[in-house]
Design a binder for these strands. Structure first.
Lengths: 84, 84
DNA sequence: CTTTATTATAGCACATATGCTATAATAAAG
DNA sequence: CTTTATTATAGCATATGTGCTATAATAAAG
């Protein structure tokens, strides 16, 4: 039996896009965000391409790296799950 | 050599407290949130006691379970890391 | 085109999140 | 106190995040 961890790919893609926008609007490269956040460059790239499902503490690091409020990372709308 | 994943315990504790408040203000038990979010009860408890560092998709599930905006989960202030 | 900057991928090792299940601890009633 | 509801812990199995490092792909200049 498959116990599937089916996480919200749609949400992750929305978040990825939002983050990329935010970062670019601040004029910082992935490498610079890497330096400022303490995350490795490959991890920044993984998040911005929605190839990973980051932990909350990682989000904290990103918010600090971009010097923004945590909530600002989440100013995008999550799709409501379809009712059964 | 220890490669330590030193995540932000302070942030996780703040988040835990914030979530517990939010949930109680909605008058829902951990069990009910478990049901609504699709997360197991033990996981809700782990988060509210800051014993785990949840993934972004887990946060999505909680926001849906509480029927709130994602950003509302993050209406608390993160401590700025001390400068070196 | 050549050089340089930026972003995307990859693979491995290790740490940890999460589901599942059971149980304990605590609180709330009665 | 006894019963019931709620929350906290625990241990195991499995999936996956993240650091690290190297490399490839793409973009931006020159």
């Amino acid at each position: 039996m498959e116990r599937k961890e089916l996480f919200d790919e749609e949400g992750l893609r929305l978040f990825a896009e939002h983050l990329k926008q935010l970062r670019k609007s601040k004029g910082v490269s992935q490498e610079e965000l890497s330096y400022r956040s303490g995350l490795v460059l490959s991890q920044i790239a993984r998040i911005e391409t929605a190839r990973t499902n980051p932990r909350l503490s990682t989000l904290f690091q990103i918010a600090r790296g971009l010097d923004i409020e945590l909530a600002e990372l989440f100013n995008f709308r999550l799709q409501p799950k379809q009712q059964s």
